[in-house]
């Protein structure tokens, strides 16, 4: 029983932090740009696939941790310029456009990378022996790195001028523009940052799972659940919701069944929408 509780806590923490990294990216793009990015999960997948490719080419996972997210951020800038800006970020058009990018990125990956799931050796081997079971050292490292990155994002949004510009754009893009906030650049930056965060999560996950061209779908689904539960575009809410979903999933999976965990999480999201239209931390709209 104690063993299972310890396992639930460990698994819950690791998955919550990874989930938060992906979901915060989605939440940022929605908050700042007011667009729903259906292709967000594909940025996660590209991070993982690039991490495999870079590690295979250079032999260094560390290079992949730095280069893969930058590459994905670059791609996001390109998508922004090619596809989102020309439609002036119209909410309905961007949903269709990002859905299109989901398929483009997924099928390009299938063509270039193939259908196989490929693994990368973790940079940190071995396990921590607990009285009940062993636990991967690398997973603990992932949790620490993810926590630091989330702290960084928090500081960026709350404590820097860039963050101030983002928050101003989020509150009212037109008025912000009138006050000389470079709104198009803020949009581009937010989109790239969101993509890079998803990509980092993808990179970190490769040694634990492996890179596969369809892995973005699950990431997208979970991120949406988190973002809806936490309140669209709300950073604090997204973080809190990640932990609610992460611990719920681990706890219910270990003590009951994983299928029940998913059911309960979906039910919770639905309830949050019914009871509080804006999610747990969003402004109530219902």
């Amino acid at each position: 029983m104690t063993g299972q509780l310890a396992l639930a806590l460990l698994e819950g923490t690791v998955s919550s932090l990874l989930l938060a990294l992906t979901a915060v990216g989605l939440s940022l793009t929605f908050g700042v740009m007011r667009i729903v990015n259906i292709a967000h999960g594909e940025f996660f997948m590209l991070g993982a696939v690039l991490a495999w490719a870079i590690t295979a080419a250079t032999g260094s996972f560390l290079v992949a941790v730095v280069v893969a997210p930058l590459g994905v951020a670059g791609l996001a800038v390109l998508i922004d310029a090619l596809a989102l800006r020309p439609v002036r970020y119209a909410p309905d058009a961007t949903i269709v456009i990002t859905l299109g990018w989901l398929y483009i990125l997924q099928q390009l990956t299938l063509l270039l990378y193939g259908p196989e799931a490929r693994a990368v050796a973790p940079p940190l081997l071995g396990t921590v022996s607990l009285p009940w079971f062993g636990y991967s050292r690398y997973k603990l490292l992932v949790a620490a790195v993810a926590a630091c990155l989330l702290g960084g994002v928090w500081w960026l949004v709350r404590g820097t001028t860039l963050g101030l510009l983002m928050r101003a754009t989020q509150q009212d893009a037109e008025i912000a523009q009138a006050f000389a906030v470079p709104v198009p650049r803020v949009y581009r930056g937010a989109f790239a940052l969101g993509a890079a965060l998803a990509a980092v999560a993808g990179v970190l996950v490769v040694p634990v799972q492996q890179a596969h061209y369809l892995m973005g779908l699950d990431a997208l689904l979970l991120s949406f659940m988190v973002v809806i539960l936490g309140g669209l575009g709300n950073l604090r809410g997204t973080l809190a919701a990640s932990f609610v979903i992460g611990y719920l999933d681990a706890g219910v999976s270990i003590f009951f069944t994983p299928t029940l965990a998913r059911l309960l999480a979906s039910l919770l999201v639905a309830l949050a929408l019914v009871v509080r239209g804006g999610g747990l931390f969003g402004e109530a709209r219902a």
Binding site: G3, Q4, L7, A8, E11, S15, F133, V208, Q209, M215, D218, A250, S253, I254, P258
Partner: peptide, 8 residues
């Protein structure tokens, strides 16, 4: 995608 939680 993750299996540790089944092992108990």
């Amino acid at each position: 995608t993750s299996f540790t939680k089944y092992f108990p």
